[in-house]
């Protein structure tokens, strides 16, 4: 699967599910870049057809509405939509 990694400081395991045409997903990536944290992301609309089911199930585990951006933190917390303040808050509390 076409998961991209962005290097940065370790603030826990960050996985972002996004849509390539969605400005709110882009804002989320820009915020993570600005915060300088390490994260992975996947633009789900660009995955090959045969992987769509798999990625759908993966996102639905965290967000049954299958909406984007969906940011999963440390496999336990999920932030749906570009909630700038909340992302800043949660990541501030994570290990440096």
């Amino acid at each position: 699967m076409d998961i991209k990694h962005v290097e940065g400081r370790n603030a826990g395991k960050l996985m972002l599910y996004a849509i390539s045409t969605c400005p709110w997903c882009r804002k989320t990536k820009a915020l993570l870049n600005e915060l300088g944290v390490e994260y992975s992301y996947i633009d789900v609309d660009l995955v090959p057809e045969e992987e769509e089911d798999k990625i759908t199930r993966e996102v639905e585990r965290w967000n049954d509405r299958l909406s984007f951006p969906t940011l999963v933190i440390d496999d336990e917390e999920v932030i749906i939509g570009f909630q700038e303040e909340r992302i800043r808050q949660v990541l501030k509390g994570k290990k440096q």
């Binding site: 849509i19 045409t21 969605c22 400005p23 997903c25 984007f68």
Partner: peptide, 25 residues
Amino acid sequence: LTLELVKSLLANEERYGYQSCPCRW
């Protein structure tokens, strides 16, 4: 933001043949 969304609508029209919502799969 609006111009970005407009661009995405046009991109989706090229990609899918219709202007699908930019923020949905």
